[in-house]
Write a protein that binds this DNA or RNA. Structure first.
Lengths: 128, 128, 128, 128
DNA sequence: GTGGTCTAGACCACG
DNA sequence: GTGGTCTAGACCACC
């Protein structure tokens, strides 16, 4: 009955967004793989103690983003994601990268500092 | 009458947050500097076509974050920010860096790709 | 429908600050405890006869100060506050203590008088 | 031309209140004494670089509180303050003492901690 | 002139 | 139901 990915709900940001992020994170670090069965809305909502509607919204979001695939009557499955070209991929990260540069500057960090911190964060994610 | 920083309001995220971000961004790229006078709440609200209260909320946020300084009856001024140590600074970026790693992986980008994209984003910010 | 803490609005200082103080006071004297549910913005505003936005501002302030925790869509709850070390705690009281010493001297009171008065005030707060 | 008391204006609280407090503080620590001549509004405003109206308001406040005395055509003088009885004096401190107790509790300090800190603050004020 | 507070009432996101 | 955002417009304190 244990979840196939770590998920602990914290106050401060919408619960459904936290679920979406947890799934993407598990996918990125490899603990969840394309083809894996995804827990049912009912199970998941019970497991983490939130309203089923909330989980439903998260599943809808993930489906819309191409992370999950719903097989009617059988359940949800993690979908093999088709990567866009590098150029398009980078374009999607634009906002995030700019925010990172802005915040880093505000904190007095150089580009080299951020590169180093990025390497560390990347390692941490893949290692877990 | 022109604003000392670029600011165009778009739907999708709270207006006051967009203002806060625009100010931080201008500060990071150098078009706004510590000591500069900040436009009055009334002027700014008129300039971008939103209610004065909305601008007021942004000013309150920026003041609380130590970006602006209010001289009662005279106006707001950009404050010299005291950088925390590098370790603390990097810690504040933790969430942003992890999100970046997760999203990049989802888009099929390698760590090297992201480093390169970060360099480009950094250049763009400083060049403008 | 009664409030879980005493609160009577008086003119002379901002209403939202009075709310913030009343909450902190109730927390100090124990009539409000970590984990307790906090009244909804609408209820509280109706109860004390002020605009919901005013209460909202107080809630925002208390949240920013780490006194309340917001669970979106469910309500606000009193948060367990993490005490700083004694040294830092005393440092935060510096201004208040100096003001007390200045005012007491002006009123012709000795340090012993103030100590005694402080003891009485402390008792009163905890006894209520 | 040096001021008979330390006074440095900081943003964050009304300037006239800062002036009032600085005078009371100087009086409490003895660097200003009953009978001393008080600087003229014009001089003081020039000295600290604020609007004369602001200084005027501070002087009015201090006069109303019985700290200064205006001798028409001659200037202002520090007044010998008549102390109220102890009971009345303590009553005036009530709000300050309660706030102190509330804040101290929130910071996890005991009554003994506050007594000790009060002693230290008192010493510091008198020693300077 | 400046920012700060408050009211009145609408609309949206979240669970 | 909850809190969060926004508009419209008033009044006050400060300088």
């Amino acid at each position: 009955m244990a979840l196939p990915f770590p998920l602990e709900i914290r106050p401060g940001s919408p619960v459904y967004e936290q679920i979406v992020y947890a799934v993407k994170r598990a996918l990125a670090q490899g603990s969840l793989r394309p083809g894996d069965r995804f827990p049912s809305v009912r199970n998941l909502s019970q497991e983490i103690g939130v309203n089923p509607n909330t989980v439903q919204k998260a599943v809808g979001e993930l489906t819309a983003q191409g992370v999950l695939e719903v097989h009617a009557g059988q359940g949800c499955f993690v979908k093999a994601f088709e990567h866009p070209g590098k150029t398009d991929g980078v374009r999607e990260l634009h906002g995030l990268l700019e925010t990172l540069a802005v915040e880093a500057t505000r904190l007095g960090l150089s580009e080299a500092d951020v590169r180093k911190a990025l390497g560390a964060a990347w390692q941490r994610l893949k290692r877990e």
